[in-house]
Computed example of a mutant assay.
Amino acid sequence: MKHPLNPSDFYFCEVQQADAAQYTLTGPLVEESEVILEACRTDWRTWNKRAENLKTAALLRSENECTTPRAVVVKYSSGSNNIYLSTLGEFTNTEKGFKTLGAIIANAGIPCKALEQNPDEIFFFQDNKLLFPRQAAKRMVKADGRKSLTIYVYSPRPLDDLLIEPNMPKLTLRTGTPDTELVINGKPVEIAGKDYNRADFRELPLLQGWNCLEISMPESTPDDKLQGHFFCDNRADYLPQVRASYVNPEAK
């Protein structure tokens, strides 16, 4: 095996709320296929917070009660041709899942073009949030007692005039320190809410297309305080269309 995988590589219930797969596979085609990956027979999220003396028995019972098909990745072979089927729709919502799926594809021998982007630099959409990459702090630039990060955010529609239509998406950026400052397309944005461990910038005035966001905080701020994310409380359909990048795509 080119890329060894361990059981821990498939444990996601503490890093995302969404199911890695919403469906499983069954039927004649699956019966004639090689099952590469199966879903777990129990929902670990149900038992994670229970007492240890109850958890083991509860897990064993729920596994024994599971009667549904569990195949989520299968390989069907016909002559020299191979067809791979997968239902892992929410598997790559995190850096961990992204890397695990890449290893599965490589181990299966599936031809796959190498990614141009490092998974450590991807803004993942997870649990209705667009998350900053875990290594984002390493890209901050220090100057004049502050450190700053520049990112580019794509909006499919303008958000700079909330009176254009009712129920306009209201996008929020949250960071881990109240000392955060934000500039969007050269214009400062005021903090709308804060406490000792967060700052919220609400109703971000993004233009349609790519926007330049400059995020800064005191140079002494611990790196983990940059753990920011975007969310949109009033329009669930908007955030999945938002994209973010360290590099201005329009300058490529």
Rank of each mutant, 00 (worst) to 15 (best):
T56H: 11
T26F: 03
L115S: 15
K147H: 01
E38L: 05
S155Q: 09
R50A: 09
E65M: 13
S148H: 07
D127P: 05
T42W: 07
G89R: 02
Q22N: 10
F124T: 01
F12I: 04
C13H: 10
E95P: 00
V30E: 00
P28F: 10
G145L: 12
C66N: 15
E116C: 07
P133S: 12
R134I: 08
G102F: 02
E31R: 08
L59E: 11
E65D: 15
L60F: 06
T42S: 08
F123D: 10
E90D: 00
T56W: 09
C40D: 11
L25S: 01
I110D: 07
K96Y: 00
Q22P: 00
F125Y: 11
T68E: 15
T46G: 01
R134P: 03
F132T: 02
V15L: 11
C13E: 15
I110C: 09
D127T: 00
N93F: 03
E95M: 07
A39G: 05
K75R: 10
I36S: 05
Y23M: 09
P111A: 02
M140V: 02
C66G: 09
V73Y: 02
R134T: 14
P28T: 13
N48P: 00
K138N: 13
F125T: 02
T24A: 00
L130P: 02
Y76P: 04
A39S: 14
K96H: 04
S80Y: 06
N107R: 07
